[in-house]
Design a protein around this nucleic acid. Sequence first.
RNA 1: UCCCCAGUAGCUCAGCGGUAGAGUAGGUGGCUGUUAACCACUUGGUCGUUGGUUCGAAUCCAACCUGGGGAGCCA
Length: 431
Amino acid sequence: MNGTRIADLGDHVGDEVTILGWLYNRRSKGKLHFLILRDGSGLCQAVAFKGKVDDDLFESLGRLSQESSVIVRGTVKRDDRAPGGFEIGVIDATVVHEAEEYPIAKQAHGTDFLLTNRHLWLRSRRPYATLRVRHTVIRAIRDFFDDRGFTLVDAPVFTPSACEGTTTLFEVDYFDDEKAYLTQSGQLYMEAAAMAFGKAYCFGPTFRAEKSKTRRHLTEFWMVEPEIAYADLDDVIALGEEMLCEIVARVLDKNAEELEILERDTAPLEAIRAPFPRVHYDDAVRALNDGGIEFEWGGDFGAPDEDFLSRQSDRPTIVHRFPAAIKAFYMKRDPEDERLSMSVDFLAPEGYGEIIGGGQRAEDLGYLQEQIVKHGLPEEAFKWYFDLRRYGSVPHGGFGLGVERTVAWICGTEHVRECIPFPRMLYRIYP
RNA sequence: UCCCCAGUAGCUCAGCGGUAGAGUAGGUGGCUGUUAACCACUUGGUCGUUGGUUCGAAUCCAACCUGGGGAGCCA
């Protein structure tokens, strides 16, 4: 079916157009109806005058329920009184389907109700704007890596064992009494891909069975994980920094309207430029203590610690060289301090927390075998991984970026659940 | 798993020991420029569940259920 998209109305002033859409709202005033139409590209106002359209049609438009699907034919004109600046003078309309009483009103709703009605809530302004920004973010990430010679190499969703431990894995029945687990990270597979393609990345859903109930957690979330051969920690940090700058710039360029709907102050986003502050773990601990926060060297940062550190700058804060003891088994040790690892976290500004975690990987076979034993991981499952250190091992590294946390930060959204179309959370898996 | 908060009309909430309320949505009527339109009338209830205290419980107490916020862990 052919129609004009509401977003393109500006190119059709004076023309007769057909809008294929839904009734977002109606304001009736005696002998005229203001129909607010929605078509997925935007909102526009159409006006139907009694006498100018068929009497039966005029009457049925006055009764039309919210979210009824409707095809409207009319003439486009500029009108400052109309939201969006354009208005359609209705010539004719066809009601495709008369909607039942729509549960989502124009007024306030509670979180539980909105999440239970997520399939309908998607039509509302905020979710619409947020998911359009998400689309831009994903597109920007794909372009960023594709333009730099990375190959997209998909990692499996079913995995035979834990990448970094087993307590937070979703277990599923595989064949013949075997167990499989939903992936927590595609990283180990990306290390294999990096040795094959030089630069590789995966982009997909990952799963964490953590019983976390906070604004930063989902049980299913999307992650992009680049991995590069012949790379050290500095290369990884530079890559993450450049990527974040490009993502933010792209959203500012493409989604001004969406950010406006979200009432997002764009000034903090415009400040996102390289270089980001780089803070050594030792210095971060010192900064926390100087700031009056009790924190012992060797621990991992909690939410208040991250919050404090990230608020020292208006740009993302890069914390590097965490103690090896609190990081995954595959992290390379810091040659300058054996207690530390060549790891890095990027903390988003404005208190949005960790959005990137990564580092340089250990390339020595003996060291990794030792670590597997120390971490109590099943050696058998890592046989293929060890092969990567048997056949042409090189320095390499990469990171994982959480898409929803990044979108939440850019949109200024309170909770990550709004930054994925159908959030999966602790105790919520509907719709 | 732990700590805090909340469950009353389709939805958002008020009521906090003495007859179950408002706004909004829905319905009916009115209105030629509305911007969450407005005005009048109107339908709508097992006050989360179970037990207890009381002459009397939506209201006080306990347990449970559901949801929200946070901690830990993480992206």
